[in-house]
Amino acid sequence: MTNVPQAAPLLAIDDLRVAYHRVAVALHGVTLRVMPQTIVALVGNNGAGKTTALRAISGFIGVDDARVIGGSIRFAGRRIENEPPHANTARGIVLVPERDKVFPNLTVAENLTVAATRRASSAERRRLDELVFALFPALAPLRARLAGLLSGGERQMLAFGSAIVCKPELLLVDELSLGLAPVVVDDLARRVRAIRRELGITVLLVEQNVGVALAIADYGYVIESGHVVLEGPAGELRGRPEIQQFYLGLATGNQVRRYRALRERPANGPGDRRQ
């Protein structure tokens, strides 16, 4: 799609291996590229290794004693594996977490001001706050409300807002759509594209909902059991029968549980009936 091959990637992950407690390996050599100002999706089922990859990029903090045991993560050319989260935030990698994404006992406005924005004057901070309210107008009337009282969608918007206030170059989004109504997800998807378009922020989406992810993203990676099993431009991936069958739920009956298992079966198997 819009990938420019000769440009340097903003995020380059090569042969990344991560283990928990030094023994349980969760990623077995994952390689992926995120080009500047693109939206890339990393999709896969529960336990496929998505969250581990995300944690490795955003920095571990005492999470189950996880460590990068091999390979590299480069951000803007610099190696960042096993760095603490605040150091990565300072570099411009900011996470929208899956759970506990806002401070429930702080107001919406406080949730925005609490972020320690890098190199920002107070005038710029105000401008950033206003920018958030412009991107998410629904939040503006809720400024004084406690974040714990927001709806799921509002909470997700606020999480994006407080991430944007940190002036990210790379926005990591863990499960954009989880637990949200389809209408809300569609709205959020539009806004993520707007964030990329208007602010020039690069986005890495980590999603279980493959349909949503590939609708937003330019490029996608499919991960299974700690391996990348498929990659390509999002539109292309959407058209792949394996993806439709296994991840988009278009198949009936005799489903294959793993993409790799599917690949090993003869083409035009019984799963394709519906097409």
Partner: peptide, 24 residues
């Protein structure tokens, strides 16, 4: 104050606070 709000935030969710650039 900014530091006061940060203190409240860090008490609630240290992980998120750290990810928002707050030095715990």
């Amino acid at each position: 104050t900014a530091w006061g709000v940060r203190m409240r935030a860090a008490g609630q969710n240290p992980l998120l606070a750290e990810q928002r650039g707050i030095r715990l």
